[in-house]
Amino acid sequence: MIWTDVPWLGFDTETTGVHVHEDRLVTAALVLRRAGAHPREADLMRTWLADPGVEIPEKASAVHGITTEYARENGQPITQVLDDVASTLTDHWKRGFPVVVFNAPYDISLMEAELRRHGLPTLEERLGRLPSPVIDPLVIDRVVGKYRKGKKTLVLMAPVYGVVAEENAHTAEVDVQMTLDVLGGIARKHSDTFGAMTCMELHEWQKREHAQWAADREEYMRRSVGKEVVISRAWPLE
């Protein structure tokens, strides 16, 4: 199946922090774009608000707008949210269709850590394999936009691919739709490079390119600022 012609399921989370093995899920959004890079029908969206069972730091609340009190009063139990999201993701993967995630190792690794923490089957256990196929616009842009100056955030990347950067970025439902739009722009702009790949061919290509980027970044940091860093080669799951 050519990756541009199958249903894409966009996935994004907002959390209590930035540490994938320690922090907790607060919100999640899934958006089904049924025609992939050729949208002809309205997207189907589902969102969740969880009570993560821990305090949400003020720094995290300032980003996504969810406070501890609001989550406790309005959120669903975290185990219910995790099981719902995991079931939807794995059902899509089992059909051979890709899940689209910007900076995939963060959201997918956090999901695995949360499922394991709460005694629920992980994505890998539900699938009987590592989560795949995954499409990560950040990995692709690091290759095709390698020499473009500036940070590679979703908001800054959006205009490069003809997408309006939303003012309400950093809410899961807005970010996931913007991620799908950016991927559509990449598909149109670089059809000669990626147009004939299957979902799994693109998945494996991203694994190789992420590992190469990590090695190059480590070398750059060592040479330019004399800083030794270790960047995980694992993708899309740390």
Rank of each mutant, 00 (worst) to 15 (best):
V144T: 06
V144W: 06
G145I: 06
K146F: 07
K146L: 13
R148F: 09
R148I: 11
K149R: 15
G150V: 14
G150D: 07
G150C: 10
K151L: 10
K151G: 13
K151W: 15
K152P: 00
T153Y: 01
T153F: 01
L154T: 02
V155T: 03
L156I: 14
L156P: 06
L156Q: 08
M157P: 08
M157S: 15
A158V: 11
P159I: 10
V160K: 12
Y161S: 13
Y161T: 10
G162C: 12
G162K: 14
G162R: 15
V163R: 11
V164P: 09
V164L: 08
V164Q: 08
V164T: 12
A165G: 08
A165F: 11
E166C: 09
E166T: 06
E167P: 00
E167L: 01
N168W: 03
N168V: 00
N168R: 05
A169E: 00
A169F: 02
A169K: 00
A169R: 02
H170W: 01
T171R: 04
T171E: 02
A172C: 04
A172D: 04
E173L: 04
V174I: 01
V174P: 00
D175L: 01
V176H: 02
V176T: 03
Q177M: 05
M178W: 11
M178T: 07
M178N: 07
M178A: 08
L180R: 05
L180S: 02
V182R: 15
L183K: 11
L183Q: 09
L183W: 10
G184Y: 12
G184E: 12
G185W: 05
G185Q: 05
I186C: 05
I186Y: 03
I186D: 03
I186S: 06
I186H: 02
I186W: 03
A187H: 02
H190S: 07
S191L: 10
S191W: 07
S191N: 09
D192H: 06
D192M: 04
D192G: 02
T193F: 04
T193D: 05
F194K: 10
F194E: 11
F194W: 14
F194M: 05
G195C: 14
G195W: 12
A196T: 07
M197D: 15
T198V: 09
T198E: 11
T198W: 15
T198N: 12
C199Y: 15
C199R: 15
M200S: 11
M200R: 10
M200G: 09
M200E: 13
M200N: 11
E201H: 09
L202D: 09
L202T: 11
H203I: 07
E204W: 11
E204R: 06
W205T: 01
W205G: 00
Q206K: 05
Q206V: 09
K207M: 12
K207L: 08
R208C: 14
R208N: 14
R208S: 12
H210N: 10
H210I: 15
H210R: 15
A211C: 06
A211L: 06
Q212F: 04
A214M: 02
A214T: 00
A215D: 03
A215E: 03
A215T: 05
A215C: 00
A215F: 00
D216W: 03
R217D: 04
E218S: 03
E219Q: 07
Y220W: 10
M221H: 12
R222W: 07
R223C: 04
S224Y: 00
V225K: 03
G226Y: 02
G226S: 05
E228Q: 02
